[in-house]
Amino acid sequence: MPRFLSSIGATERWLILVIACICIGLSLATDTFFTLVNAFDLLNSSAVNVIFAAGLLVVLVAGGIDISFAVGASVVQYLAVIALMKLGGGNWAIGLILAAFFGFCLGAVNATLIYHFRIISIVVTIATFNLFFGLLMFFTGGVSIYLLPDWMTRRVILFEHETPAGWAEITLPVLVMAVVVLATWFLMRKLSLGRQIFAMGDNVEGARRLGINIGAMHYLAYGWLGACAGIAGLMQAHYAQEVVPNALYGRELEVLAAVVLGGARLGGGRGTLLGAILGLALVAITQNGLNLLGVSPYAFRMIVGFIILVAISMSGETLGFLTERMRRSRRADDVASGGAE
């Protein structure tokens, strides 16, 4: 256990502390927060974002950024549903494979532009964001699909428990979330390819000299995010029981902000899954709490934006700078008093 604790980074510890404080506060302030029903609801509704976050983390660690993944997921929803209809319905396995495949392809488009044409990732993904979304809205005419295959709209309850406040349920997206998170963890921590992605994000030139295939790593990172986004899109369609073209519009910023809150660094090489999940948890719990406290939903984004602005201002460099200053002034005092003796 102590070994496990020591492997948790400083950002993650801070997040755990802050989340714990918020949870305690909310438990005391409301009688609905600290219930199994609420906890499971939070889990069910956050599953999609966590899947996005796992994918995005890989791209951030690789030293890139992607803001096109959420609209990419919407594109995948349509493509997957249309393909499934053509296939005559399909099932979960086929659906997930299709979604991951289409998502991977969209990610590969980004990787191609970023790697082969040396365009910075933020510019590429701003462009593909608009390209994907514009084409989606054009071809769908903004029309939603309500007629989904039966298996897709049927709620899959994995665990249920009756409590005085109602039924507490865990549904399929939570399981998929757990699988994606585990797979991403396995890729980034346990597989040689994941370590090469880390290495590339940490020191591109060093990675190149060691003979790491930089191009392949780009495709892996953006493709992984694409596949995760595709799966998340499918889960979102399942959760909402419909496919709406602009349902995920704007989700990318929420997820990006939360992942960055969790300690991932723009520029690569640093970032943990635990941090990303904690970052999302902080945002989700804050939103949930504000809701339960009856705060206007309009205030929510403002508060989240403010939290993130403060959090990035308090990033490692700033804290390092401040502690260095404190250390110096203390030492200077020592020197001065030492000189007086």
Binding site: Y298, R301, M302, I303, G305, I308, I312
Partner: peptide, 23 residues
């Protein structure tokens, strides 16, 4: 002053301003 990345800082500012305006 904090060395935050402009993309992140302006992104957070954008989320904040949008929230503020909507609020």
């Amino acid at each position: 002053y904090t060395g935050a990345h402009p993309i992140l800082a302006s992104l957070a500012m954008m989320i904040f301003l949008r929230g503020l305006g909507e609020f």
